[in-house]
Structure formats: structure tokens, C-alpha cells
């Protein structure tokens, strides 16, 4: 287990390093002068030179990279040009919206996908299965931002149950804040639930084909007993892996959905930063998102090792 952990931790560090290099190369080394992009076409040579000096653009790429990463490791993500505050401060504030949004959406998706996926598998090739899979196809095809708009149309414009957008800060109490995250979370959860229910269904069917399930049935165990004792436990392995992979897409979805509901999260921040050409903010948020994705994949690997009843080492290469 320890060597497995060490191996995984090494992979995590390597992936983080690769991600930071990739973001740096795309934003800082490829053609295009960041100072020119930030100030626009009308910039004077003096202001360009001043910004280049401030961003350290006169240094070599290697020094700039290590400066940046050194800062990041100390919690210094640089200064936002438009907001005039440290990026770390901005990000911490916005994470209070994005992280709860992603978690609520994820929980909703799992709560829907697990029972319906298993139900579809148990009723394979019967009307119940077709119904669940049909809805899953629809869920995959509905864009999350359109679903968000439809939810606003129904629950805010027609029924007046919710606000059409915006966020009630956590400081004003949990209730209003959670309420303002509910519709966005539903919008975000739809395609997630659709994908997961398909994964759950096929993972369940795979386990049903295993010899030990046939043996359990043959020795007289009832269908529900087989389902709960053998099938569900073993079905979780592939499902957890996909859940981890899907986390990145949940975050990407949050970037879009936040903009539908005018939620002050990371997604809205990054979009505004792009339109305001605040490259320091964009670079650091993308790194943060990449780091988050890599980290979640690491945690999933660990969870996998904990759930997997097989001995460690051989099963995972």
C-alpha cells in the first residue's frame, strides 16, 4: 500500500508539473505579447514597457516560469490588473460559490444516477430500461446553459419561486445562499446524471455476467440478496473512476452555468478576466482548475484502492 501511495503521489506531482508547464507555454511562450494583449492596440510604448517590467516579461522564459511557480507555492498568485487585489484573494472569494455548486450538482447527479442506472440494468431490455436510457439520451443532448435558461423561464419568470439569477452571500445565512445555488446545480447535474446512469447500468450488467454472481444464484441466494451483497459492491469500482474523470467536466460546466445565472464564481471571474484582458487572473485560475482536476483524479485513485478488495500492487500498474 505504501509503495502504491508513493507511486501515485509521484504521478500527482508529475501531472501538476506538466499542467503548469502547459499553461505557461500556451500563455507566455507562444507568439503574442502579453503586455500588448492586456493593454490593447492603443497602448503607448512607455506604458507597454512599464507593464512588461511589472510582469517581469524582460526576463527569460525559464526565470519567469520559476518566479511564477515559486510564488504559487507560497500562495502568491500575482496581482489582478482590473481589480487591483491579489488573485489569491479573488479566487478564495469566488471558490465559495463554485465549489458548493459543483458539490451539490455532483450529489444530485449521483442520487439520480445510482438508483436509475441499477434499475435499468435489472430491467434490461424491458420498458423500464428503455425509458431510463431514453431520458439519459435526452439529458446528454440538452446543453446545460439552455437547460438553465429553461429552468429560469419556468421557476423564476412563470412561477416566481426563485430569482432569475444572482447569489445571496453565505454571510446572510445558509438558506438563501443554498436557494440561489439550487437551479444552477440542477442545470449542471442533468448531463452528469445522464452520463453516470449509463455507466452505472453497464457496470451493473458487467458484474451480473461474472461467474461468482451465477454461483451465488445457483446456490439459492435470492435476486435482491445477490444484488445487494455482490453486484452493488463490485459495480462501484468502475463507477467511481468515471465519477473522478467527470469532475473536470463538472468544473467546465460550472464555468458556463455560472454565467447563465450570474453567479459570482470562478467561471464568471475567468470570463470577465478574458474580456478585460486580465491575463494574470486567467493564467492562475486555469492552473488552479488544472490542479483541482489532477488532485481529484489522485483522490479517486486512492478511493479506488480502498474499495478494491484485490491486493494492491498487482492490480494497479
Amino acid at each position: 500500500m505504501l509503495s502504491y501511495l508513493a507511486h501515485r503521489a509521484f504521478n500527482l506531482a508529475a501531472a501538476l508539473l506538466a499542467a503548469s508547464l502547459l499553461v505557461f507555454v500556451i500563455l507566455s511562450v507562444l507568439p503574442g505579447d502579453p503586455a500588448e494583449i492586456m493593454l490593447g492596440v492603443g497602448a503607448t510604448p512607455e506604458s507597454l514597457a512599464a507593464l512588461r517590467a511589472e510582469l517581469g516579461l524582460n526576463e527569460s522564459a525559464v526565470i519567469r516560469y520559476f518566479d511564477w511557480i515559486g510564488g504559487v507555492l507560497h500562495g502568491d498568485f500575482g496581482q489582478s490588473m482590473t481589480y487591483g487585489v491579489p488573485v489569491a484573494e479573488l479566487v478564495l472569494e469566488r471558490l465559495q460559490v463554485t465549489v458548493p455548486l459543483a458539490i451539490i450538482a455532483f450529489l444530485m447527479a449521483v442520487a439520480v444516477a445510482l438508483p436509475f442506472g441499477v434499475f435499468a440494468a435489472v430491467n434490461r431490455n424491458r420498458p423500464g430500461d428503455y425509458l431510463v436510457m431514453g431520458f439519459s439520451q435526452l439529458g446528454l443532448a440538452v446543453p446545460n446553459f439552455w437547460f438553465g435558461i429553461l429552468l429560469i423561464l419556468i421557476f423564476a419568470v412563470q412561477l416566481h419561486w426563485f430569482q432569475a439569477g444572482g447569489f445571496a452571500p453565505w454571510a446572510d445565512g445558509w438558506g438563501p445562499a443554498l436557494k440561489s445555488l439550487l437551479l444552477p446545480a440542477v442545470a449542471l447535474a442533468l448531463s452528469e446524471a445522464a452520463i453516470l446512469s449509463r455507466v452505472v447500468r453497464s457496470a451493473t450488467l458487467d458484474v451480473y455476467r461474472e461467474d461468482y454472481v451465477r454461483t451465488a444464484r445457483a446456490k439459492g441466494l435470492s435476486k435482491p440478496a445477490v444484488l445487494f451483497r455482490h453486484v452493488l459492491r463490485n459495480m462501484l469500482l468502475p463507477v467511481v473512476t468515471i465519477m473522478g474523470l467527470q469532475f473536470a467536466f463538472l468544473i467546465a460546466g460550472a464555468v458556463v452555468v455560472e454565467n447563465v445565472f450570474y453567479l459570482p464564481g470562478l467561471g464568471r471571474l475567468i470570463l470577465q478576466a478574458i474580456f478585460q484582458r486580465d491575463l494574470v487572473v486567467v493564467q492562475n485560475i486555469i492552473l488552479l482548475l488544472a490542479g483541482l482536476v489532477v488532485l481529484v483524479n489522485f483522490i479517486v485513485d486512492l478511493a479506488y484502492a480502498l474499495i478494491d478488495p484485490r491486493p494492491h500492487g498487482e492490480a494497479h500498474r
Partner: peptide, 25 residues
């Protein structure tokens, strides 16, 4: 293959956001 794993782990829409940040929407 590792590079393709990395790109694959990063949703297209986020890559697009990154590229839009540099080269404009």
C-alpha cells in the same frame, strides 16, 4: 500518450477559454 491523457483530462471548453484569453474570442 501521457500528453494526450493530459489534454483529454482537460475539457475542450476550458482549453478554448485558455486560447480565447490569449488570441481573443
Amino acid at each position: 500518450m501521457r500528453l494526450s491523457d493530459l489534454i483529454f483530462a482537460f475539457p475542450a471548453i476550458l482549453t478554448a477559454v485558455l486560447i480565447a484569453a490569449l488570441y481573443g474570442p
